[in-house]
């Protein structure tokens, strides 16, 4: 467990915008092939960390490496290794879903852009909508296309900034399934979220970013040990609203979406 060089290593990262001090000394490491969740409330600085990792923003001080490459000195190599799905879907609205994927595939210089696009469309249940403009997609479909675009060319590290914010429960479960698949293939995944259950469901390791610092960093089991041991209590378990919603809506929604 200890030998492998970290896929991501962040040390003493600081960043401020004018007099807004956002990050003051962020440290964490992500082991290759693991899912790492960065948890934090609105404005905690999650997107700022992600943008620094994706070479879109320069840190004021501290270092960050991706796949062993420094994000400032070796930005071009970092861009080969990492793939970002930003907080807001970044798809070309005027192109179709297929054209969006082919575009990214060409820019990543993969050998068979059309084939890669077709595979990803099938994998993300977008084949029926493949030749419609992305502007006609629902929020969930757009998010799926967005994530699919980030997977083109099999990057070694993928970063998802709040991948499920604004999605309905079912689309959210689809994104979760995708993240698990990607991780199962050996890709390192960093995801940011405000949802505790999301981190709990997906992540091997969870860090909590609060007031510009990582205040907790560990596996779920380690995090649980921070609290007093559980006591046994008997409570009548009511179905959650989410379970009711999913039971009532069933698969009808998926069909509705496909035929729209």
């Amino acid at each position: 467990m200890t030998a492998a060089a970290p896929a991501i290593a962040v040390r003493g990262l600081r960043k401020s915008f004018g007099d807004v001090d956002v990050l003051h000394g962020v440290d964490f490491e992500v082991e290759p092939g693991r899912v790492f969740a960065l948890l934090g409330s609105n404005g905690a600085g999650k997107t700022t960390v992600v943008r620094i990792l994706a070479t879109l923003l320069r840190p004021d001080s501290g270092t960050a490496t991706v796949d062993g490459f420094d994000v400032v000195d070796r930005a071009a190599d970092v861009r080969e290794s990492i793939s970002l799905t930003g907080q807001f879907a970044a798809v070309d609205e005027i192109l179709t879903g297929r054209e969006n994927l082919v575009l990214v595939a060409r820019l990543r210089h993969v050998t068979d852009p059309a084939g890669v696009a077709a595979d990803l469309l099938a994998r993300f249940d977008l084949t029926d909508a493949a030749d419609r403009r992305a502007s006609t997609y629902s929020g969930g479909m757009r998010r799926r296309l967005d994530i699919a675009m980030s997977l083109v060319g099999d990057p070694r590290v993928i970063v998802l900034d709040e991948p499920t914010t604004g999605l309905d429960p079912q689309a959210r479960l689809e994104v979760w399934r995708t993240v698990r698949e990607v991780a199962a293939g050996g890709t390192t995944v960093v995801l940011t979220t405000q949802y505790l259950d999301e981190a709990e469901q997906l992540a091997d390791r969870i860090a909590i970013l609060h007031r510009g610092r990582i205040i907790v960093d560990g596996t779920l089991a380690e995090l649980r040990r921070l609290l007093p041991p559980a006591t046994v209590e008997y409570v009548e378990r009511q179905p959650t609203l989410e379970e009711i919603f999913l039971a009532v809506v069933g698969d009808a929604r998926a069909e509705g979406e496909a035929s729209r």
């Binding site: 861009r79 970002l84 798809v91 820019l107």
Partner: peptide
């Protein structure tokens, strides 16, 4: 403003 520019910027192009 749509974010596609940032996507391009984070890619090796």
């Amino acid at each position: 403003s749509s974010g596609i520019f940032e996507r391009f910027q984070s890619m090796p192009i």
